[in-house]
């Protein structure tokens, strides 16, 4: 097991920029991407925490446009994961409205 815990946990704050918010397709893309990493990745909104590898978890955040999301990752490829997932948010999920 990779070491995890607050010590080697990285985080980055992103904003949901697309019009419809974190809907099924964006959530699916995030989950799919997250699943390609070994790191534990979580999306946090206020006190809610969703497993980034679970589309259902992400959907249950029900995050509309403008929501600030803190992506936290821990594990060997954590920094790469944060970078790529953050980029996905910035790109508005590759053209999904």
């Amino acid at each position: 097991m990779e070491p995890s815990g607050e010590n080697n946990s990285l985080e980055v704050v992103v904003c949901v920029e697309n019009e419809l918010g974190l809907h099924a397709r964006p959530a699916g893309k995030v989950a799919q991407l997250a699943q390609s990493f070994q790191a534990d990745i979580a999306l946090c909104v206020a006190d809610q925490r969703a497993d980034a590898k679970s589309i259902l978890d992400i959907l249950s955040l029900a995050a509309p446009q403008g929501t600030e999301i803190c992506i936290k990752a821990s594990g060997c490829d954590a920094s790469e994961a944060l970078e790529q997932i953050g980029q996905l948010f910035h790109d508005k999920f590759e053209g999904d409205t």
Binding site: R25, G28, A31, Q32, D51, K53, S54, I55, L56, D57
Partner: peptide, 16 residues
């Protein structure tokens, strides 16, 4: 095809 994709996602979703 996108619908199948999302079903596929749900199918392997750790939550479920």
């Amino acid at each position: 095809g996108a619908i199948i994709d999302s079903h596929l996602m749900i199918c392997q979703d750790p939550k479920l």
